[in-house]
Protein backbone atom coordinates (compact mmCIF):
# COMPACT_ATOMS: atom_id res chain seq x y z
CA UNK A 1 0.00 0.00 0.00
CA UNK A 2 2.40 2.66 -1.08
CA UNK A 3 1.28 6.16 -1.62
CA UNK A 4 2.73 8.28 -4.36
CA UNK A 5 4.73 11.24 -3.21
CA UNK A 6 4.19 14.43 -5.17
CA UNK A 7 6.80 14.80 -7.87
CA UNK A 8 9.51 17.02 -6.44
CA UNK A 9 11.95 19.20 -8.36
CA UNK A 10 10.03 18.89 -11.60
CA UNK A 11 11.75 20.75 -14.33
CA UNK A 12 10.82 21.52 -17.83
CA UNK A 13 13.33 20.25 -20.34
CA UNK A 14 13.17 20.63 -24.05
CA UNK A 15 13.51 17.07 -25.27
CA UNK A 16 15.05 18.13 -28.56
CA UNK A 17 18.09 19.52 -26.74
CA UNK A 18 18.96 16.10 -25.32
CA UNK A 19 21.39 13.76 -27.00
CA UNK A 20 20.40 10.30 -28.18
CA UNK A 21 22.05 8.43 -25.28
CA UNK A 22 20.32 10.76 -22.83
CA UNK A 23 17.00 10.11 -24.53
CA UNK A 24 17.58 6.37 -24.44
CA UNK A 25 18.30 6.55 -20.75
CA UNK A 26 15.19 8.63 -20.17
CA UNK A 27 13.06 6.21 -22.12
CA UNK A 28 14.43 3.27 -20.18
CA UNK A 29 13.66 5.03 -16.95
CA UNK A 30 10.12 5.77 -18.06
CA UNK A 31 9.63 2.18 -19.18
CA UNK A 32 10.75 0.98 -15.79
CA UNK A 33 8.41 3.35 -14.02
CA UNK A 34 5.52 2.20 -16.16
CA UNK A 35 6.20 -1.44 -15.27
CA UNK A 36 6.23 -0.52 -11.60
CA UNK A 37 2.87 1.22 -12.00
CA UNK A 38 1.42 -1.85 -13.69
CA UNK A 39 2.65 -4.04 -10.86
CA UNK A 40 1.28 -1.68 -8.21
CA UNK A 41 -2.06 -1.63 -9.94
CA UNK A 42 -2.16 -5.39 -9.90
CA UNK A 43 -1.33 -5.71 -6.23
CA UNK A 44 -3.85 -3.00 -5.40
CA UNK A 45 -6.47 -4.92 -7.31
CA UNK A 46 -5.61 -8.00 -5.25
CA UNK A 47 -5.91 -6.04 -2.02
CA UNK A 48 -9.21 -4.60 -3.17
CA UNK A 49 -10.54 -8.09 -3.84
CA UNK A 50 -9.44 -9.31 -0.43
CA UNK A 51 -11.19 -6.48 1.36
CA UNK A 52 -14.28 -6.97 -0.74
CA UNK A 53 -14.38 -10.67 0.09
CA UNK A 54 -13.97 -10.02 3.81
CA UNK A 55 -16.70 -7.41 3.68
CA UNK A 56 -19.04 -9.84 1.95
CA UNK A 57 -18.23 -12.50 4.51
CA UNK A 58 -19.43 -10.21 7.24
CA UNK A 59 -22.87 -10.16 5.65
CA UNK A 60 -23.19 -13.81 6.70
CA UNK A 61 -22.27 -13.12 10.31
CA UNK A 62 -25.75 -12.29 11.54
CA UNK A 63 -27.21 -12.92 15.00
CA UNK A 64 -29.16 -15.87 13.53
CA UNK A 65 -25.89 -17.56 12.59
CA UNK A 66 -24.81 -17.89 16.21
CA UNK A 67 -24.26 -21.49 17.29
CA UNK A 68 -24.39 -22.77 13.74
CA UNK A 69 -21.68 -25.18 12.70
CA UNK A 70 -18.92 -24.05 10.39
CA UNK A 71 -15.82 -25.58 8.91
CA UNK A 72 -12.68 -23.94 10.10
CA UNK A 73 -9.77 -24.12 7.68
CA UNK A 74 -6.60 -25.30 9.41
CA UNK A 75 -4.66 -25.30 6.19
CA UNK A 76 -5.68 -24.62 2.63
CA UNK A 77 -6.93 -28.17 2.25
CA UNK A 78 -7.86 -29.33 5.77
CA UNK A 79 -10.86 -28.30 7.83
CA UNK A 80 -12.19 -29.04 11.31
CA UNK A 81 -15.85 -28.63 12.27
CA UNK A 82 -16.64 -25.83 14.70
CA UNK A 83 -19.50 -23.78 16.05
CA UNK A 84 -19.85 -20.05 15.70
CA UNK A 85 -19.58 -18.92 19.33
CA UNK A 86 -20.17 -15.24 18.87
CA UNK A 87 -21.55 -13.16 16.06
CA UNK A 88 -21.05 -9.87 17.83
CA UNK A 89 -17.37 -9.32 17.24
CA UNK A 90 -14.70 -10.16 14.73
CA UNK A 91 -10.96 -9.67 14.98
CA UNK A 92 -9.45 -7.74 12.15
CA UNK A 93 -5.87 -7.57 10.99
CA UNK A 94 -5.13 -3.86 10.87
CA UNK A 95 -1.55 -4.27 9.70
CA UNK A 96 2.00 -4.79 11.01
CA UNK A 97 0.84 -7.69 13.17
CA UNK A 98 -1.81 -5.81 15.09
CA UNK A 99 -5.31 -7.21 15.40
CA UNK A 100 -8.28 -5.32 16.77
CA UNK A 101 -11.61 -6.60 17.96
CA UNK A 102 -14.47 -4.81 16.30
CA UNK A 103 -18.21 -5.31 16.19
CA UNK A 104 -19.88 -6.19 12.91
CA UNK A 105 -20.91 -2.66 11.99
CA UNK A 106 -17.44 -1.33 12.70
CA UNK A 107 -15.87 -4.14 10.75
CA UNK A 108 -18.09 -3.50 7.74
CA UNK A 109 -17.19 0.13 7.99
CA UNK A 110 -13.50 -0.77 8.18
CA UNK A 111 -13.59 -2.77 4.96
CA UNK A 112 -15.62 -0.09 3.24
CA UNK A 113 -12.99 2.46 4.18
CA UNK A 114 -10.17 0.20 3.02
CA UNK A 115 -11.82 -0.43 -0.33
CA UNK A 116 -12.34 3.29 -0.79
CA UNK A 117 -8.69 3.96 0.09
CA UNK A 118 -7.37 1.33 -2.30
CA UNK A 119 -9.65 2.48 -5.09
CA UNK A 120 -8.46 6.04 -4.59
CA UNK A 121 -4.82 4.94 -4.84
CA UNK A 122 -5.59 2.98 -7.99
CA UNK A 123 -7.15 6.01 -9.60
CA UNK A 124 -4.12 8.11 -8.70
CA UNK A 125 -1.76 5.58 -10.22
CA UNK A 126 -3.84 5.34 -13.36
CA UNK A 127 -3.70 9.09 -13.85
CA UNK A 128 0.06 9.25 -13.31
CA UNK A 129 0.62 6.17 -15.47
CA UNK A 130 -1.27 7.75 -18.33
CA UNK A 131 0.81 10.90 -18.07
CA UNK A 132 4.03 8.91 -17.97
CA UNK A 133 3.12 6.87 -21.01
CA UNK A 134 2.37 10.10 -22.87
CA UNK A 135 5.82 11.41 -21.94
CA UNK A 136 7.32 8.09 -23.00
CA UNK A 137 5.64 8.33 -26.39
CA UNK A 138 6.95 11.85 -26.87
CA UNK A 139 10.46 10.76 -25.95
CA UNK A 140 10.23 7.89 -28.42
CA UNK A 141 9.09 10.33 -31.11
CA UNK A 142 11.99 12.71 -30.49
CA UNK A 143 14.38 9.75 -30.55
CA UNK A 144 13.00 8.73 -33.91
CA UNK A 145 13.47 12.26 -35.23
CA UNK A 146 17.05 12.42 -34.01
CA UNK A 147 17.89 9.09 -35.51
CA UNK A 148 16.50 10.08 -38.89
CA UNK A 149 18.40 13.35 -38.75
CA UNK A 150 21.57 11.41 -38.05
CA UNK A 151 20.96 9.08 -40.99
CA UNK A 152 20.30 12.05 -43.27
CA UNK A 153 23.52 13.70 -42.17
CA UNK A 154 25.81 10.78 -42.75
Amino acid sequence: MSQIPPEANMQQIDLTTLTLPQLTQLKQQLDQELTIFQESLQSLKLAQNKFQNSGECLEKVTPEAEGKSILVPLTGSMYVPGKLASTKHVIIDIGTGYYAEQDIAEAKNYFKRKIAFVTEQMEKIQVIGLEKSKIRDTVAEVMEMKMQAQVAQS
Partner: peptide, 24 residues
Protein backbone atom coordinates in the same frame (compact mmCIF):
# COMPACT_ATOMS: atom_id res chain seq x y z
CA UNK B 1 6.54 0.01 6.14
CA UNK B 2 6.03 3.63 7.07
CA UNK B 3 2.74 3.74 5.22
CA UNK B 4 1.55 0.53 6.80
CA UNK B 5 2.39 1.81 10.26
CA UNK B 6 0.62 5.08 9.57
CA UNK B 7 -2.48 3.16 8.56
CA UNK B 8 -2.30 1.12 11.77
CA UNK B 9 -1.92 4.29 13.80
CA UNK B 10 -5.02 5.76 12.21
CA UNK B 11 -6.97 2.57 12.87
CA UNK B 12 -5.88 2.48 16.51
CA UNK B 13 -6.90 6.10 16.92
CA UNK B 14 -10.36 5.28 15.64
CA UNK B 15 -10.87 2.61 18.32
CA UNK B 16 -12.19 3.39 21.76
CA UNK B 17 -9.76 2.74 24.61
CA UNK B 18 -11.61 -0.31 25.97
CA UNK B 19 -11.29 -2.23 22.71
CA UNK B 20 -9.29 -5.40 22.74
CA UNK B 21 -6.15 -5.26 20.66
CA UNK B 22 -3.86 -8.18 19.88
CA UNK B 23 -0.36 -8.30 18.56
CA UNK B 24 0.78 -11.26 16.49
Amino acid sequence: QLNENKVVKEELNLLSDDRKVYKA
